[in-house]
């Protein structure tokens, strides 16, 4: 098993009374697998994902449980060890391609960032790798995009750039937190296709977070349904769609517009 999350609880301590936002979260992710996390907004999807990515290390929050990556517990390992996984083995892309790129740095530098941190490649080698990954995410004319600033690109292009910079070291896990929510429908479909392709080609496991069940159905092998911090049900994608156990899941499925792309 590549990633195993056991009984993860996340508590905020930044108010007078502690507030638990994720209860007993369990997840396992095999190599090459795509698992979806669905649920209404506020159900704790992002918090779980951030915890797995090792991004929830504020002092005012408490996490318990285990996040085992290759057998190593990311919750208790040293900061330096965690950092050596981040970018290298685990990457993440966010919802807003507008804000997830640094506005004052060129695309090339941002795509190469992981290489600068984790490798000793020369400038020329980094450039070659950047161009090749920009090609992989189907950006036309990567040589010119390399020298552009984020504001010169469209939302869809920016999200491709984000995927490129997350994928450049071919991580074992890519966490995608609502990567298409801010994009319009046709671009959404393209990004989903791209994720599928990367998963096939590079054997990257993907944790795909969305509140859009139809996207989850087209992309994922398995899915987890969350509500108010709890996992309601999980299982094979067809099983969940054909025979949902929970009333809430049924509601979510019924809410999908009967429009097929």
């Amino acid at each position: 098993m590549l990633l195993e999350v056991k009984d993860l609880n996340i508590e905020f301590h930044d108010h007078l009374t502690p507030e638990t936002v994720v209860y007993d979260f369990n997840l396992s992710l095999k190599e090459g697998e795509i698992v979806g996390i669905v649920g209404e907004s506020g159900s704790g999807k992002t918090m779980s994902a951030l915890a797995i990515a090792g991004l929830l290390n504020r002092k005012d929050m408490k996490k318990s449980g285990e996040i085992l990556f290759d057998g190593k517990d990311l919750l208790t390992c040293k900061r330096s060890e965690l950092r050596s996984y981040q970018g290298n083995d685990i990457s993440m892309i966010f919802q807003e391609p507008m804000t997830s790129l640094n506005p004052v740095k060129k695309i090339g530098a941002q795509v190469e960032e992981s290489l600068k941190i984790h490798t000793n490649l020369t400038k020329e080698e980094r450039y070659q790798k950047a161009i090749s990954i920009l090609n992989d995410v189907e950006i036309k004319d990567p040589e010119s995009v390399y020298h552009k600033y984020p504001h010169q690109l469209s939302g869809g292009m920016r999200q491709r750039v984000m995927i490129a910079s997350a994928m450049i070291l071919e991580p074992k896990i890519l966490i995608a937190d609502e990567p298409t929510t801010a994009l319009d429908v046709t671009i959404q479909a393209q990004i989903i296709k791209l994720l599928k392709k990367l998963n096939k080609q590079k054997k990257t496991s993907i944790l795909f977070i969305s509140h859009d069940l139809s996207l989850v159905r087209t992309l994922c092998h398995r899915a987890i349904v969350m509500k108010q911090g709890y996992i309601l049900e999980e299982g094979n994608i067809e099983e969940i769609f054909e025979h949902p156990k929970e009333a809430y899941t049924k509601q979510l499925i019924e809410a999908i517009p009967a429009l097929e792309l």
């Binding site: 991004l55 993440m92 892309i93 966010f94 804000t99 997830s100 790129l101 640094n102 506005p103 984000m162």
Partner: peptide, 24 residues
Amino acid sequence: DYVKSARLMGAGSLRIMFVHILPN
């Protein structure tokens, strides 16, 4: 988010402060 992404790539605090945020 761009700071989160940088942290996620394994950038250390000093790198985030002076390479990523300062130019902004």
